[in-house]
Design a protein around this nucleic acid. Structure first.
Lengths: 95, 95
DNA sequence: TAAAATAGTTTATAAAATAAACCAAATTGT
DNA sequence: ACAATTTGGTTTATTTTATAAACTATTTTA
């Protein structure tokens, strides 16, 4: 039996990191995700859009005073995808 | 504390698959790896070279009769890298 | 003996990640 | 007061990576 494919949307360090962080919080701000993932704003922006387009997260853009505030949450679909990814990954890393 | 970086050489479905397979056998033939990873010969050839250049595996090219026979083994260094990768990954996937 | 299969390698292309350049508003320094 | 820097991003360009396509050499099969 051959190895199963890993969801390519999740098999990316930055996107996986974002999803991982969103798993354990109600919601997270752009700046928080940027710090925790050690990413550049540009890269993070692009990857968040991809996760959003896949329906794995929702992105809400508001303002804190007059500064933009971007808030992200994982969706039910995203949660399922994350869990499936982790299960598939176990085939690769054992246990 | 930010998320740690994942070894980019291992964070690739095909290369991770190869390493995973090599973890559990003494050695493996090109054709076996090709089947188990569901990859094309071209892609596999390229990725094996990368693993070899990093010192994660050794590649021995001999002949079975007059057909080429490529045999791969994981190295000590590769084993260590794999284990480190798995440990880092736990930061991402929990547990 | 021509056609197809095996076991690959090399090279070209597509897709992805990353970085660089940019924008608008707010804050800091002089 | 006003230039310079910082904050919070987006958009676009570049680099890197993965994948696919084309090719080579030998061998087997029809």
């Amino acid at each position: 039996m051959a190895l199963k494919d890993l969801d390519p949307l999740l098999h990316s360090q930055l996107r996986l990191g974002v999803m991982s962080l969103l798993m354990s919080v109600e919601s997270a701000e752009f700046t928080y995700l940027k710090e925790k993932t050690n990413s550049t704003a540009g890269n993070l922006s692009v990857q968040l859009d991809k996760l959003s387009e896949a329906g794995y997260i929702t992105i809400e853009k508001t303002f804190k005073g007059k500064k933009p505030l971007t808030t992200c949450k994982i969706t039910k679909h995203g949660l399922k995808a994350f869990e499936d990814y982790v299960n598939t990954l176990k085939q690769y890393i054992g246990k």
